[in-house]
Amino acid sequence: MEIPKRLEQALIKLYNAFHNNELNPECCTACAVGNILDNQDSWKHLTNGHGSLELSYVGRVHQNLGRTFNGYTPFELLQIEKVFLEACGFTVPLCHYNPKPKNATNKETLFNGLCAVVSHLCALDNIPNVMDYSKIFEYEKDSPVYKFDVIYL
C-alpha cells in the first residue's frame, strides 16, 4: 500500500511528538496541527476559534487560492484539530467556559486524540486506517486468516 507523503510526514511528526511529550491540545504549536505544521502557530489565523471549522477571512483566502500547508488545505487542518480536541475530551471551540478534561496532557487522553487523528488523516487520503488491528483477529472456519510466528522467551 502506497502511503501519501503528507500522511507519512504527519504520522512521523505526531509519533515523535507523542513519545517526546511534545503533544499538548491547549497549545497551538504543540497540538495535532501545530506538530504537523512544524510547531508553527501561523495556522491559528485560519480560524477565529481554536477547534472551530469556520474559516476566518485569511483561511478562506488561502482555501480559495488552493494553498496547502505541509500538504493539507486550511479546512482539512481545521478538521484535524477539531477531531483531536474532541477525542481528547474538549468541547469545541475552545473557550474558558466550555468543559475540558482535567488533565489534557495525560498519556491516555493524548493517545485517544492521536488515534482519532490518525484515523481521520487516513480517511482524508482514502486509505485504510493504519492503526486498525482488527485484521489480525479475522478468522475462517475457526482458524486465523493471518498466521504469526510467536517466539516465547
Results as ranks from 00 to 15, higher is better:
134 S>R: 13
65 L>C: 09
26 E>W: 03
42 S>P: 00
51 G>M: 08
3 I>S: 07
61 V>M: 12
67 R>F: 09
53 L>I: 01
102 K>R: 13
13 K>P: 05
28 C>F: 10
118 V>C: 09
134 S>M: 03
80 I>V: 09
51 G>H: 03
127 I>N: 12
110 L>G: 00
108 E>F: 11
31 C>S: 13
37 L>W: 10
114 L>N: 02
85 L>I: 10
79 Q>Y: 00
94 L>Q: 09
10 A>V: 04
80 I>H: 03
62 H>P: 02
82 K>C: 12
78 L>G: 03
125 D>C: 11
17 A>H: 01
74 P>N: 06
93 P>M: 05
25 P>G: 10
130 V>E: 01
114 L>S: 00
104 A>G: 11
34 G>V: 15
43 W>H: 11
24 N>T: 06
70 N>P: 00
57 Y>L: 11
81 E>F: 01
91 T>V: 11
2 E>M: 14
117 V>G: 07
133 Y>H: 08
97 Y>C: 10
121 L>C: 01
18 F>D: 00
21 N>R: 13
109 T>W: 11
9 Q>K: 15
107 K>H: 06
104 A>I: 09
71 G>I: 06
119 S>T: 08
88 C>G: 07
15 Y>T: 00
114 L>Y: 10
79 Q>W: 01
25 P>D: 05
129 N>S: 09
39 N>V: 13
90 F>V: 06
17 A>T: 00
7 L>R: 12
125 D>N: 15
53 L>D: 08
101 P>T: 09
58 V>Q: 15
90 F>G: 13
73 T>Y: 07
133 Y>L: 14
121 L>K: 03
121 L>Y: 03
5 K>W: 04
119 S>D: 08
137 F>R: 08
37 L>A: 10
109 T>L: 12
119 S>N: 13
56 S>H: 06
14 L>S: 02
64 N>C: 10
28 C>I: 14
17 A>M: 01
64 N>I: 03
59 G>W: 03
96 H>D: 13
124 L>W: 04
11 L>K: 04
82 K>D: 07
31 C>I: 09
18 F>C: 01
136 I>A: 07
52 S>M: 05
91 T>N: 06
125 D>M: 07
19 H>P: 01
86 E>I: 08
136 I>S: 08
98 N>K: 15
22 E>L: 01
113 G>Q: 06
92 V>A: 05
62 H>S: 13
17 A>P: 02
72 Y>M: 01
